[in-house]
């Protein structure tokens, strides 16, 4: 899902920005034909809006809030919850923290969390962190996505901006955090302090850390098993048919 071409044109005019595809392509770094096609087909991705906003020094969140799909974007505090922040810490970094707490001398702590996000499974981890009940079904219903397709998107780390915002709307959390998680806007643009992940990790209680690691390892175990089964199936079928 994206914003409509006519809304995008209106927004450009309203903000006094050129509607020329070649000028927009120069500003956003996208190919001229790509921008032209997006406008002509009436389906402009959020990333184009954000790109244009950045080029003109407009706050990307405020820019997106000009469109009806995102009009309530800035209606809640932007800062994420600790659970949301920790969902964006890779299990390897969580285990580094566990190692440090176990034997600080042998496993000294780094200043920074080593693995950036989005990383494998980070979209799913974020949904799990904000899930108050049946957020997946609610998002699927409200965005008109088949639930099985949403599961696939989460497995492939391909949650869309509108799905992320819808999930946040349903669960009552920051509407902007999801956009940071899906990589549409930067941490800075989403008002996430630079060391937010490190801080959240350090203040975590031991039992919470262990529980989170346990959850992530269960997910990892399931993921590895699924991948192994997929490989076995594909190999067996190609061997039998080919």
């Amino acid at each position: 899902m994206a914003v409509s071409g006519s809304d995008f044109k209106q927004w450009l005019e309203g903000r006094g920005i050129t509607t020329s595809a070649s000028e927009l392509s120069r500003l956003t770094g996208l190919h001229r034909v790509t921008v032209g096609n997006q406008m002509r087909r009436g389906n402009v991705p959020e990333s184009t809006v954000v790109g244009v906003a950045r080029a003109y020094g407009i706050d990307p969140v405020a820019a997106l809030a000009d469109f009806k799909e995102y009009e309530d974007l800035d209606s809640r505090p932007r800062s994420p919850t600790a659970a949301e922040v920790l969902s964006q810490v890779h299990h390897a970094d969580l285990m580094v923290e566990l190692q440090h707490r176990t034997q600080a001398r042998l496993f000294p702590r780094d200043d920074h969390v080593r693995i950036d996000f989005p990383h494998d499974g980070s979209h799913r981890a974020w949904i799990d962190a904000i899930d108050t009940g049946d957020v997946r079904h609610d998002v699927a219903e409200k965005t008109g996505t088949a639930i099985t397709y949403l599961f696939t998107q989460l497995s492939d780390n391909k949650l869309t901006p509108i799905q992320a915002v819808t999930a946040a709307r349903v669960s009552g959390t920051s509407l902007v955090a999801g956009l940071v998680v899906v990589g549409l806007i930067t941490m800075e643009e989403g008002d996430w302090p630079e060391d937010v992940r490190e801080t959240a990790l350090r203040v975590m209680k031991h039992e919470e850390l262990i529980e989170l690691i346990q959850q992530r390892l269960n997910l990892l175990q399931r993921r590895v098993r699924q991948r192994k089964e997929a490989l076995e199936y594909a190999e067996q079928l190609t061997d039998l048919i080919g």
Partner: peptide
């Protein structure tokens, strides 16, 4: 279609394309 499966088997595409590694 059968030929495509034969190519996939001969080139071991499943093993090459489907990743089971933990490394990111």
């Amino acid at each position: 279609g059968l030929w495509a499966f034969a190519i996939a088997r001969r080139r071991q595409l499943a093993r090459k394309k489907l990743d089971t590694d933990l490394s990111i």
